[in-house]
């Protein structure tokens, strides 16, 4: 366990040095190289094109690549676009897991509504392209490297020690559980209190926002 955590730490330190040497001018190149590497990995994995694992791998790759590009890319507007791509790939994950309702809601609420807000804010602030990684940082950078390294080590450890269980068990699988009907039934029976409490919270936030915004107009 400890050895693997240390290995992860070394890996992230090397990756950090590589990105720092390449970015920001070669951010796109770094992305393409990472992408090509992942495609090769998926192809080498030799999963059938109809298998769940193949598509889950593809979506995971898209999610990780877009998440990396959000951070690496020097233009904040493009980062917002990659965040949209990222949310979309998460929605695809939901689809693969048979949660169609959740997938559609993820696209409508996050990729559709919330990201428009982000887009507006970035557009109206008129942020210029960042100076690059050299400009920001400070002490939190070292903390990020150490914690990221520990996390990578943990992931590595978990992947090496995973049990022989398959990803899902066809016997216990209920094909109706992700539909709007099932979800609605659960929300209005078992989780009724949490659901209504959340709606109350949202109303309170909405009224608060209106009062704060209108305070000076009166």
């Amino acid at each position: 366990m400890v050895v693997r955590l240390l290995l992860g730490l070394i890996f992230v330190l090397v990756a950090f040095a590589v990105v720092r040497a390449l970015a920001p001018a070669r951010a796109a190149l770094a992305g393409i190289v990472l992408g090509a590497g992942a495609v090769v990995l998926v192809a080498l994995n030799r999963q059938a094109i109809t298998s769940v694992e193949f598509w889950a791998g593809l979506c995971g790759f898209a999610a990780i690549l877009s998440a990396l590009l959000i951070v690496i890319h020097p233009n904040p507007m493009v980062s917002v676009l990659f965040l949209i791509v990222n949310l979309f790939s998460v929605a695809l994950f939901y689809l693969i897991l048979n949660a169609q309702f959740l997938a559609a809601i993820q696209v409508i609420v996050y990729a559709g509504a919330i990201m428009v807000l982000f887009l507006f804010v970035v557009m109206l602030l008129n942020l210029k392209a960042e100076e690059g990684l050299r400009g920001g940082g400070g002490p939190q950078r070292y903390g990020a490297v150490v914690l990221g390294g520990l996390f990578a080590g943990l992931m590595f450890h978990a992947l090496r020690n995973r049990g022989p269980r398959p990803y899902f068990e066809p016997g216990s699988f209920d094909s109706g559980f992700g539909t709007a009907r099932e979800l609605g039934r659960l929300l209005f029976t078992r989780y009724l209190f949490a659901f209504e409490a959340a709606s109350l919270l949202l109303i309170a936030a909405m009224i608060g926002a209106v009062i704060l915004a209108k305070r000076r107009i009166r």
Binding site: A104, A113, M123
Partner: peptide
């Protein structure tokens, strides 16, 4: 699809990006 209406609403909300990004 089971969520036809939601798919429609989802892609209708995607249409905003094209116009907003073309303008920006």
């Amino acid at each position: 699809v089971d969520n036809g209406i939601l798919i429609i609403l989802a892609f209708a909300s995607m249409g905003v990006y094209g116009v907003a990004l073309a303008g920006w």
